[in-house]
Nucleic acid binder design. Structure first.
Length: 204
DNA sequence: TGCCAGGCCCTCTTTAGGGCCTT
């Protein structure tokens, strides 16, 4: 893809943006011409204490969050970082909701499309044991760049997995032009029909 | 009172149910 892509990952206080959960850390990685060209990371003070499960799951403690900047400092920066980029996240529906909710509270609106590395991975790695990020990193032999369940490390590994999947489309299916339209079609394709469809789609 | 996420995807399906993924 020619476009700038930003791979995004949030750590949050829980699973439900609509139910009052908030982002506590953001990691974002910019991809241009198949390479990582920029990174953004910040902790975010949620305005309440996170429970012990989240402290253990992420390694982000209440003490760390007490000293973190608030959403109205972080999200305008993030908005500028993602401006004009196609978004990617692993299980994109999750991160998209938190991003849109936090931006909306500050009067910003996201315009750009959001692609899901989980949906693409389910179609390209049909024999993987499962499609969790950690499993796919191992399965696709992507380098581990940090601690899982920290936002920047997860965003970086998702970005490297994304590049590996784009390489797979080129290698396995000889698709040279991987544009937004193709990826949106791929996401919507039934999993079992994907392989045949991609073989028919390969560039002449 | 009792519940507590939600959307995708498969299948023993579509008048439904349950597993997967994200924190």
């Amino acid at each position: 893809m020619q476009e700038r892509i930003v791979v995004l990952d949030f750590e949050t206080t829980g699973l439900s943006a609509a139910g009052g959960d908030r982002a506590i850390e953001v990691g974002a990685v910019a991809l241009e011409n198949g390479k990582i060209t920029d990174k953004y990371q910040n902790l975010i003070q949620p305005g309440f204490k996170v429970d012990s499960f989240i402290e253990h799951y992420t390694g982000i403690t209440n003490h760390m969050l007490d000293q973190a900047p608030q959403a109205d400092e972080v999200f305008p920066e993030l908005y500028r970082f993602i401006d004009g980029s196609v978004m990617v996240a692993h299980n994109a529906g999750f991160d998209r909701k938190f991003l849109d909710m936090e931006l909306d509270q500050l009067g910003y609106t996201r315009q750009q499309p959001f692609l899901c590395s989980l949906r693409i991975a389910r179609r390209l790695y049909q024999n993987a044991p499962n499609h969790k990020l950690g499993t796919l990193v191992k399965y696709a032999k992507v380098p581990v760049t940090g601690t899982f369940h920290r936002a920047l490390a997860d965003a970086e590994m998702t970005a490297l997995l994304w590049l590996e999947m784009m390489n797979l489309l080129r290698r396995r299916y000889q698709i040279t032009e991987i544009g937004l339209h193709l990826l949106l079609q791929l996401e919507k394709k039934a999993i079992k029909q994907t392989d045949g469809w991609l073989r028919e789609t390969q560039s002449p």
